[in-house]
């Protein structure tokens, strides 16, 4: 049928959206910007496929609660941690129109200045990317099973709770 143009074909036969996400738990230092570049090169066949990228990078500070912190150990629950991060990325993909999401999180021994977490969201327009990136990060902070233990000059201590997202 001549009227069945490619555009109309795509409207008629559009497949249900596939949730695209990648979750990575790393026990060695990573460069979040190199991760972003290699992920984009691997996942998108051309840069024109997306219009907005929102990223959040969390870095280990050398102070907390007024004390210098020399290092940190991040415990996690292998299996549940990945499952929870996949669930929140899937949830975000239902709330916003997203093209892809990437979450990279460190575990094990971490030194000040090293990246702890990278959350990146790709979408057609900025609102979805901004809002979904914040949403994923806030859920990760409040529910994903990770626990920080700080090394101070005079011993170690578990971090009791995360700071609220509004501060």
């Amino acid at each position: 049928m001549r009227w069945f143009t490619p555009v109309m074909r795509s409207l008629f036969f559009r497949q249900s959206p596939v949730v695209e996400m990648t979750i990575v738990i790393k026990s060695a230092p990573f460069d979040p910007y190199a991760e972003l570049a290699s992920f984009e090169a691997r996942v998108f066949s051309s840069p024109g496929q997306f219009g907005a990228t929102a990223t959040f990078v969390g870095t280990m500070r050398d102070f907390n609660e007024g004390d210098p912190v020399q290092g940190m150990f991040l415990d996690h629950y292998p299996g549940m941690t990945e499952r929870h991060l996949e669930a929140i990325c899937a949830d975000a993909s239902e709330r916003w129109s997203l093209l892809n999401t990437l979450v990279v999180h460190r575990v094990g021994a971490i030194a000040p200045g090293e990246s702890i977490v990278l959350v990146a969201v790709w979408s057609a327009h900025r609102a979805a990317a901004f809002e979904a990136c914040r949403y994923i990060m806030e859920d990760l902070k409040s529910k994903a099973p990770f626990w920080k233990k700080e090394t101070l000059a005079d011993g170690t201590r578990w971090v009791i709770e995360n700071t609220p997202g509004g501060t």
């Binding site: 969390g58 991040l74 996690h76 629950y77 549940m80 999180h105 702890i116 977490v117 990060m137 990760l140 902070k141 409040s142 529910k143 994903a144 099973p145 990770f146 626990w147 920080k148 578990w158 971090v159 009791i160 709770e161 995360n162």
Partner: peptide, 10 residues
């Protein structure tokens, strides 16, 4: 069954 304190990742 798992037990753990409030989470502090990110």
């Amino acid at each position: 069954i798992a037990f753990f304190p409030p989470v502090t990742g990110g």
